[in-house]
Nucleic acid binder design. Structure first.
Ligand SMILES: [Zn+2]
Ligand SMILES: [Zn+2]
Ligand SMILES: [Zn+2]
Ligand SMILES: [Zn+2]
Lengths: 166, 166
DNA sequence: AATGTAATGTTATAATATTACATTATATTA
DNA sequence: TAATATAATGTAATATTATAACATTACATT
């Protein structure tokens, strides 16, 4: 996704790749990517917007009207533990991880306009953060770094709008 | 708070200072720190642990049994907007800001053991973050940086425990 | 086949947060 | 000061997000 206008990208290949990665990783880690878990993973990957648990439930209801919240949350717990998705705490929403293979100290970029979320490498940031933590005698165990703002695509649109006004 | 063992500090002076700052800031910004808002601010400052909205409601109920959730959330909204408190998104909880006077790009250090939360200066981190955002053509508007881990105080206790075991 | 463990089904409920509208307090200014 | 506008609070209802508890089924291991 990074630096690529979302409108230009072939999302079916995103989904395909995400599913491939997920299956490989689960095979490696001996985790069971059951049909429910896989389906919810697919639903999360239906686009690049963070999705809430109850949105997922609504989608799942189209296929399984009897599905309950706990079904979703269990699948989400599994996918989180497997490192296949991220929880965006500032939105209480979930997004597919872009680089589940590698241990990723990622930074989430969340667009306030189109809601699409990107994930970028931030290894240096994490090192700096850990240094500051150490300076403060704090032992970090879990870091949550979320940026809300305007993505390139939406920023360009805004500029176009401003130009058209004048 | 930083680098000071919490057990050693005089928390009444924390509260006093926090209230003084809040009143000064509200006067400057022409914001109304009404009795309700002030009281909830005090309740938030009752210690250095992040507190949930419904915990606050429970406390407030001791004084005003008719208080409703929306009372709390309104006060929280005001205090957040005034920059007097932070919301810890990973906990759905709130904590008094340690440096409300200055525009603060802070980093929250949340202890998984004692739940006490510290806030440290992280100007450089924020610059690095913004640089990475820029590299990715992303315009940052709001940054949320939360570290969960073990604070110095709890870490020392753990070491003592380990020593005693052997 | 027997057994233990993991996953799912099902029901209920907990925890967090907001909407809508009425009322009261405060600020503005005629 | 009285009239008016704006901000704050009261009150009730409801929306949203998440978990607990226990029964049943599927799967893995022996
Ligand atoms: Zn895509
Ligand atoms: Zn966007
Ligand atoms: Zn203190
Ligand atoms: Zn601690």
């Amino acid at each position: 996704m990074s630096k690529i206008l979302v409108a230009q990208h072939n999302h079916k290949s995103c989904i395909k790749q995400a599913l491939n990665s997920a299956e490989t990783i689960c095979k490696q880690k001996k985790l069971r990517l059951t049909p429910i878990r896989k389906r919810i993973f697919e639903l999360i990957w239906s686009n690049h917007k963070a999705v809430g648990a109850y949105d997922l439930l609504e989608s799942l209801h189209l296929e399984d009207p009897k599905a309950k919240p706990v079904t979703i949350y269990r699948a989400l717990d599994f996918l989180l533990a497997a490192g296949l998705i991220h929880k965006i705490k500032s939105l209480n929403a979930f997004i597919g991880c872009l680089r589940p293979e590698i241990s990723h100290n990622a930074m989430l970029l969340i667009c306030n306009v189109c809601q699409q979320t990107d994930e970028v490498e931030a290894q240096n940031i994490y090192q700096n953060i850990c240094q500051i933590a150490e300076n403060n005698a704090f032992l970090p165990q879990n870091i949550s770094l979320e940026l809300h703002g305007v993505c390139n695509s939406c920023h360009q649109i805004q500029e176009i709008d401003l130009n058209n006004l004048s």
